[in-house]
């Protein structure tokens, strides 16, 4: 059977203690929350920390707090917590995305922070050490070449988080703490389009909380494409956010602002500005939706490193963006 290598396991009770432990451990130290991403990766030697620092004993990281300008959610809430919290009703898309992650068992363990920081995935990478040796490894770990695009200088591993596209779409902000203090970054700026350096978070920083914007005048949905209704990571995620124009009266409601964010097609949650532009100032008619779907389809460039044929996945962008927008329209009327 597959087992973990040996390492030191630390269980701090406070953020201060966690940061100190990380400083002491140096680059060989890693934080862990639910462990559902890190431990499988350690068993396959993707990450090889000598010290693992658990964040699950820090009660601050599991708090939920309503604010004037929104709601703050602790990063160590489990995905299960997130999918059923009553406070989440206004944030249905967040709860939906959380509920669509993996399996009920894994959602009992995996955390919000873990899903937002999920290691990028690739079926040349998420394999055992021996398997990867058979292909002479890859750029993301132990090798030099990205087999998805061998002439490319970068790694094309895929952002496979369900919740991250929603956070980017609704304009959430992440609160971080590190050796140099606290900072807040918009969700969109937390991610890089690079399979290796996919986060702007420093390795010694902790994702503490997510600040969800106040829920007024906007709505969001999340649609996920995958082979099975459970277990599978998204091969395409569509988070769609719409800020409706107020005071439209009896006239057809108009879109004030919109964001369409795709998961599973790039190394980061990919915001498609052209799709949003196709919606602004317009009613969500079939024509507008089709135009936005077409706009999302064109820049969507899935690579051959997940389940399904990549050209089919690209075609599905159009269908899934359309369906997400149709759901938003139906919810508004």
């Amino acid at each position: 059977m597959l087992r973990l290598p040996s390492f030191r396991y630390l269980q701090p009770a406070s953020l201060t203690e966690a940061l100190r432990m990380k400083r002491d451990a140096g680059p060989d130290g890693m934080f862990v929350a639910g462990g559902t991403d890190l431990y499988p990766n350690m068993k396959r030697r993707h990450q090889e920390p000598r010290t693992v620092i658990s964040l699950m004993g820090i009660s601050d990281l599991r708090a939920t707090e309503g604010r004037k300008d929104g709601t703050t959610v602790g990063s160590c809430l489990t995905l299960r917590d997130l999918s059923v919290l009553p406070a989440f009703r206004p944030y249905a898309a967040v709860a939906t995305a959380a509920r669509l992650v993996s399996t009920p068992l894994l959602r009992n363990m995996g955390t919000l922070g873990g899903n937002l920081c999920l290691d990028t995935r690739c079926n040349y990478y998420n394999q055992s050490y021996e398997w990867r040796k058979s292909i002479d490894f890859c750029m993301k770990k132990d090798g030099k070449i990205c087999w998805v695009a061998p002439s490319s200088p970068r790694c094309w591993a895929v952002s496979s988080s369900d919740v991250a596209p929603v956070m980017v779409a609704i304009g959430a902000e992440y609160g971080l703490i590190g050796p140099h203090g606290e900072r807040v970054v918009p969700a969109a700026r937390f991610y890089n389009n690079d399979g290796i350096n996919y986060l702007t978070k420093q390795t010694d920083e902790i994702l503490v909380e997510v600040r969800l914007p106040a829920s007024n005048g906007w709505d969001a949905v999340y649609h996920k494409l995958r082979r099975r209704g459970s277990f599978d990571f998204p091969v395409l995620g569509v988070a769609a956010w719409i800020n409706w124009q107020s005071g439209a009266g009896s006239r057809e409601p108009l879109v004030n602002d919109a964001r369409i964010v795709l998961g599973g097609v790039a190394s980061y949650p990919q915001e498609i500005a052209e799709a949003a532009a196709a919606l602004r100032g317009k009613p969500l008619s079939d024509e507008t939706i089709a135009a936005a779907a077409e706009a999302a389809y064109r820049p969507s460039k899935p690579m051959d490193n997940t389940d399904f044929d990549l050209s089919w996945r690209k075609q599905m962008t159009r269908v899934y963006v359309k369906r997400a927008l149709e759901e938003l329209r139906a919810r508004h009327t």
């Binding site: 079926n123 394999q127 398997w131 058979s134 292909i135 082979r227 099975r228 277990f231 389940d307």
Partner: peptide, 11 residues
């Protein structure tokens, strides 16, 4: 190589 020798990716 076997593309998907796992319970996750063998569907």
């Amino acid at each position: 190589v076997h593309k998907i020798p796992s319970l996750l990716e063998y569907k």
